[in-house]
Simulated scan of single mutants.
Amino acid sequence: MKTEHIEVVDYDSKWVNDFNQIKGEIEDVLKDLVLAVEHVGSTSVPLLAAKPIIDLDVVIDQNDLKEVIFLLENHGYIYEGDLDLKDREAFRYEGKEHLRTHHLYVCPQDSKELKRHLAFRNYLRKHPNIVKEYGKIKKEAAKLYPNDIEKYCMYKSQIIEKIYKEIGL
C-alpha cells in the first residue's frame, strides 16, 4: 500500500503545545461531554522520534457518541467509523490549517484501544532506553520505506510486540 511520504523526526517539545491547542478546541466543541483528552502516540513521549502528527483519544461516555459525532461534524471533522477497531471512532478533518496535523479518535472510557494506547505511552515514558531504541527503529523504517506505510509498520512490529509483552497486552 502506498501512502504519503513518511517522515520521522527528532522529538519536538512544541508537540505538547500543539496537543494542548487541539485539545482546547475539542473541549470547546464538546464541553461537558468530554471526560478526558489524552495525548497518545509517539509525539506524547518525551525524546521519542516520531512522525510529526499528534494523536488524540477523546474519552467520552458511550451513551454520548451520537451527540459527539454530530458536534464534531459541525466543526470540520468527518466521521470515518471505527476502521475495524472496536470502541475507537476515527475522524479526519478539513479546514484546520491552524492546527498541527492530527489523528482524532473518540473512545468510551472502558475502550480496550484507549487502555492499550495509554499503557503503551506510559510504559515508554518510564523506559528511556526503550524510547531510544524505538526511535532509532522508527527512523530506519522511514528511511527504508518512505512511501509504504505497511512496510514501515511491519519494520517496527518486533519492538512494538516486545513492548506489548512487557506490559501484558
Rank of each mutant, 00 (worst) to 15 (best):
Y77P: 05
G135M: 06
I60K: 09
S44E: 09
S44Y: 03
L47E: 13
D82N: 15
E38C: 11
K31C: 06
K136R: 13
N129S: 14
H75D: 10
L99W: 05
K126L: 09
L118F: 11
I149C: 00
K138E: 11
C107I: 01
E4W: 08
S157D: 12
D61R: 10
D61G: 07
Q158I: 00
K112I: 08
I167R: 05
D57L: 09
L71Y: 10
Y145V: 03
S157H: 05
H117Q: 11
N147C: 02
V40Q: 06
K136G: 01
K151N: 15
V40N: 04
I163F: 14
D12G: 04
R125K: 14
R116N: 13
F120L: 12
M1D: 01
D84I: 03
G135L: 07
G81L: 08
L99C: 11
I26N: 03
E140P: 08
E67F: 00
V106Y: 01
V68L: 09
M1F: 05
K143P: 00
L104V: 05
D82P: 00
F19I: 04
C153K: 14
I163Y: 08
I137P: 12
K31I: 04
I78H: 10
K66I: 04
L47R: 14
F70D: 14
I130Y: 02
H127E: 06
L30G: 00
Y164I: 09
